Simulated scan of single mutants.
Amino acid sequence: MDTTLLTMLAVLTSAVVLVLGGVITHLAYRAARRNGSPVMRRFAAGFGLVTLGLLLGGGVHQLLGWSFLGGVLLQRSVTALGFGLLVYSLYGHADTETARA
């Protein structure tokens, strides 16, 4: 495949992931505010970090001139933190409302 086409597809798929990740983060945040659940707050923050990882990885490479691998390392580090927070929100210390269910 042509490099230009691959670059366009990479940018397009990244944009779709950013939009969908942003929507999921927003919906989880609204749910957390609605019911006051600490678990949902952590879940929203985890999805926010996963989405932010993608934005930061590409951003530092394109805008700040970091190397491609430096951007990938930043992206994967922030994404790993986000997934860790997601796991913690699902299996960590449950609030009393969730513990009773």
Results as ranks from 00 to 15, higher is better:
1 M>Y: 10
1 M>W: 10
1 M>N: 07
2 D>W: 15
3 T>C: 14
3 T>M: 15
5 L>H: 14
6 L>N: 13
6 L>Q: 12
6 L>C: 04
7 T>V: 15
8 M>N: 13
9 L>A: 10
10 A>F: 03
10 A>H: 06
15 A>Q: 12
16 V>M: 07
17 V>I: 07
18 L>P: 00
18 L>V: 01
18 L>E: 12
18 L>F: 12
19 V>G: 13
19 V>E: 08
20 L>V: 02
21 G>Y: 02
22 G>M: 12
22 G>C: 03
23 V>P: 07
23 V>M: 13
24 I>G: 12
26 H>E: 08
26 H>S: 13
27 L>C: 05
28 A>Q: 15
28 A>M: 15
30 R>G: 02
31 A>M: 10
33 R>E: 01
33 R>P: 12
33 R>Y: 01
34 R>Y: 06
34 R>T: 04
35 N>K: 09
35 N>D: 09
35 N>P: 04
36 G>N: 00
37 S>L: 05
39 V>I: 04
40 M>P: 09
41 R>V: 09
41 R>E: 00
43 F>V: 02
43 F>D: 03
44 A>M: 03
44 A>K: 06
44 A>T: 03
44 A>E: 01
46 G>N: 03
46 G>I: 05
46 G>R: 08
46 G>Y: 06
46 G>Q: 01
47 F>Q: 07
47 F>N: 06
48 G>I: 11
48 G>K: 10
49 L>I: 06
49 L>V: 09
50 V>W: 07
51 T>S: 10
51 T>E: 09
53 G>S: 01
53 G>R: 08
53 G>F: 02
54 L>Q: 14
54 L>T: 07
56 L>Q: 05
56 L>K: 09
57 G>N: 10
57 G>Q: 11
57 G>T: 08
58 G>C: 04
58 G>E: 05
59 G>H: 09
59 G>E: 00
60 V>E: 12
61 H>D: 13
62 Q>W: 14
62 Q>E: 15
63 L>G: 13
65 G>Q: 12
66 W>N: 08
66 W>D: 13
67 S>N: 07
68 F>G: 04
68 F>Q: 14
69 L>M: 09
69 L>F: 12
69 L>Y: 14
71 G>W: 10
72 V>I: 09
72 V>R: 08
72 V>M: 14
73 L>W: 14
73 L>E: 13
74 L>K: 06
74 L>S: 00
74 L>Q: 01
76 R>W: 11
78 V>S: 01
78 V>Y: 07
78 V>L: 04
79 T>N: 11
80 A>Q: 07
80 A>F: 10
80 A>T: 05
80 A>C: 03
80 A>R: 12
81 L>Y: 10
81 L>F: 13
83 F>Y: 12
83 F>L: 05
84 G>W: 09
84 G>P: 02
85 L>S: 05
86 L>P: 12
88 Y>P: 05
88 Y>W: 09
88 Y>H: 03
89 S>R: 11
91 Y>K: 07
91 Y>S: 02
93 H>K: 13
93 H>T: 11
95 D>W: 02
95 D>F: 04
95 D>K: 03
97 E>H: 08
98 T>G: 00
99 A>F: 14
99 A>E: 00
99 A>G: 01
